[in-house]
Amino acid sequence: MLTISIMARFGLWTLLRVEDKSPDKIKWEHCERCDRHIRYVHVCQVDGETKAWRIGSECGPTLVRVSEEIWGKVTATADRDLLLLHRTLRLRPLEAGPNPWGKHLGPDWVDRFATCLERRETDNYDLCAGNLRAIQNLKYIQTRLQLAEKHHGLKPFRRGIGI
């Protein structure tokens, strides 16, 4: 039997429908996850898959909730890193000229940040001298980008067509 947490890692699960198999126990089904005899069948599917799982009222809602927790964090992190990458890349041509930051921060900082963000290593990439924890690395990136944008007179980065 697969655990809920293992199944949730397959991808984002969606509840397609709930079927009531009537009060007559003869019409009830067995949960495809835990093999319990179930009246209310939760038909769930992983995004992008064709197989729909028929699982019980205990397994179904828990699976959808755990999946949303796991994949919601992944989506938020990827969205944040993509935004930071766009901000970094728009600074690349501006930072290619004379270095306004002095010797302690060479002109290659944009490339280091871009590499870190492209590899999704904001949690384990040492961006400056010293061993920083993930949140400190992320704060370092955000602060550094903000200072460079201000220095070059850039407006806040906005997403969308034609912006």
Rank of each mutant, 00 (worst) to 15 (best):
M1K: 07
S5C: 06
A8L: 11
A8M: 13
R9V: 04
R9W: 02
R9P: 04
R9F: 00
L12F: 08
W13L: 01
T14L: 13
T14A: 03
L15W: 02
L16Y: 01
R17W: 01
V18M: 03
V18I: 15
E19I: 15
E19A: 04
E19V: 15
S22E: 12
S22P: 07
S22I: 10
K25T: 15
K25C: 03
K27L: 13
W28R: 08
W28P: 05
E29F: 09
E29A: 11
H30D: 14
E32M: 03
R33Q: 12
C34H: 10
D35L: 11
H37I: 08
I38K: 05
R39C: 08
Y40T: 00
Y40C: 01
Y40N: 06
Q45M: 13
V46W: 00
V46P: 00
E49T: 04
K51G: 00
K51A: 02
W53L: 04
W53G: 00
R54S: 02
I55C: 00
I55L: 04
E58S: 14
C59Q: 06
G60V: 06
P61C: 08
V64I: 07
R65Q: 07
R65E: 09
V66D: 09
V66F: 03
S67M: 01
E68A: 15
E68N: 14
I70P: 11
G72H: 11
D79L: 10
R80T: 09
L82A: 12
L83A: 09
L84P: 01
L84F: 05
L85M: 12
L85N: 05
H86W: 02
T88I: 05
L91T: 05
R92Y: 13
A96M: 08
A96V: 08
A96I: 09
G97N: 02
P98R: 13
P100A: 09
W101E: 07
W101V: 00
G102F: 15
K103D: 15
H104C: 09
G106E: 12
G106M: 12
D108S: 05
W109K: 11
D111P: 06
R112G: 08
F113T: 11
C116D: 03
R119T: 01
E121K: 15
E121P: 05
T122S: 12
T122R: 15
Y125E: 14
D126T: 03
D126F: 03
L127V: 05
C128K: 15
C128Q: 15
A129P: 12
N131Q: 14
L132C: 04
L132W: 10
A134W: 13
Q136P: 01
I141H: 04
I141P: 08
I141R: 03
Q142P: 02
Q142I: 04
L147Q: 14
L147G: 02
A148C: 06
K150F: 09
H151K: 14
H151Y: 15
L154S: 07
L154C: 03
L154K: 03
R158C: 10
R159T: 10
I161K: 06
I161G: 05
I163N: 02
